[in-house]
Every structure is written in C-alpha cells, then in structure tokens.
C-alpha cells in the first residue's frame, strides 16, 4: 500500500473522538463507502437484500441503505469484497465514496433516549424515520447529511468530507447543550 500517510477528515492523524454524557462521538475512518446505482430492478447484493426507501440493511460484513430511486450506499469493512459483490451485479454502477464523506458514529451507553434527544435537536424528522434499520438523507445545520441508524444505541451521521469540522461542531455543541437528564 502507499507510503502516503492518510489524514482524518477532521485534520487529526487518527479518528477524532469525544464524549458527552452517555454519548460517544467517533469518526469512522475505516469504513468503505461505495455508491451503487442500478437501472433494473435488482433485489439483492450478494446475500444482502437491497433495502427500500428510507431503509438500512445489513448482512454479515455488507450493509447498504437506500439513497434514491435505484441508488444505494454500500458500507463494508472489507473494501475488496464489497467491490467484488457490486462488480458481480449485472448493470451495476459503482462510485468510490469512502473519501467523499466524513462518517461519525454516535453511540449511547443509556439506550435510545439520549440519541432521540440528540436527533430531535438536529434533524426535522419524525423519530420513526431514524428508528433502528432506517436511514435517510436530510438537512442538519444547513449541511446535506446522510443519517443511518444501524442499531438501537448507534446512530451514524455523514456529511461531505470538506464540511467535517462544521458537522463535528454541530454534533458536539448540540450534545453539550442537551439537558443532563436527556444526555445520561
């Protein structure tokens, strides 16, 4: 692999991290993101049934969420395997996106309520839109964001990599302003 040293989207050598109450914010630099576009009705990517509008699905190491009609974002920790899975789909178009987005995972140590308290300060969406297994693109502090909910206690917010610091500020400032009762 290259002898160039990568830099995190927030300008740090390693992934950025912060903690506010029960919430931990961590930059995910290791995830591979691939845009998948399909013209024809295809129902699955390898073992992963491709989710419908507003949904997020995972199978083994491969996850995907719907980003638009005929379009998905595929996530994987195994870049080669994910690329191979897409390449195996007839008519699939793939675009490398790993460096297009900053990925911030927000985990709660106190179940779903702190995440709900956080998201209602951030995005104008009903709670069910961000229930576990859901994903959507939306506006957050004037940023164009992708928000997924891989699990009950995990929320993932992505925005254009160049706006990483603005997103980080929005998430941290909001987490800091949460009433103590909601944040723990």
């Amino acid at each position: 692999m290259t002898d160039l040293t990568p830099m995190g989207a927030l300008g740090t050598a390693g992934p950025a991290a912060a903690r506010h109450g029960a919430l931990t914010l961590t930059e995910d630099c290791a995830i591979t993101l691939l845009s998948l576009a399909l013209r024809d009705e295809t129902s699955a990517l390898a073992d992963l049934p491709l989710p419908g509008p507003g949904a997020y699905a995972r199978s083994g190491d491969l996850a995907a969420f719907w980003t638009g009609p005929g379009q998905w974002m595929v996530e994987s920790r195994d870049a080669a395997a994910a690329r191979a899975a897409i390449a195996a789909l007839p008519g699939a178009r793939m675009t490398e996106q790993s460096d297009g987005w900053v990925v911030i995972r927000i985990c709660s140590e106190a179940g779903a309520p702190p995440l709900r308290a956080l998201t209602e300060k951030l995005v104008n969406l009903p709670a069910e839109t961000l229930a576990p297994g859901r994903a959507t693109r939306c506006q957050l502090h004037h940023l164009n964001c992708l928000v997924t909910r891989p699990a009950e206690t995990e929320l993932c917010v992505m925005t254009l990599r160049s706006a990483a610091l603005s997103l980080w500020h929005a998430l941290e400032a909001t987490a800091r302003r949460l009433p103590a009762a909601a944040a723990t």
Binding site: M7, G11, H141, H142, L143, L160, R161, S162, A163, A164, L165, S166, L167, H169, A170, A173, R177
Partner: peptide
C-alpha cells in the same frame, strides 16, 4: 438557532487546508 460567528453557516475545507 444558537450558532453565531464562524459557526453560523457551514464551512468547507480543502484536503490541503491544514
């Protein structure tokens, strides 16, 4: 809405900004 000054709107930085 809470954000003022430089945080009032998003800022985008180039990969070589730092």
């Amino acid at each position: 809405g809470g954000d003022t000054g430089k945080d009032f709107r998003p800022t985008r930085l180039t990969p070589t900004h730092h």
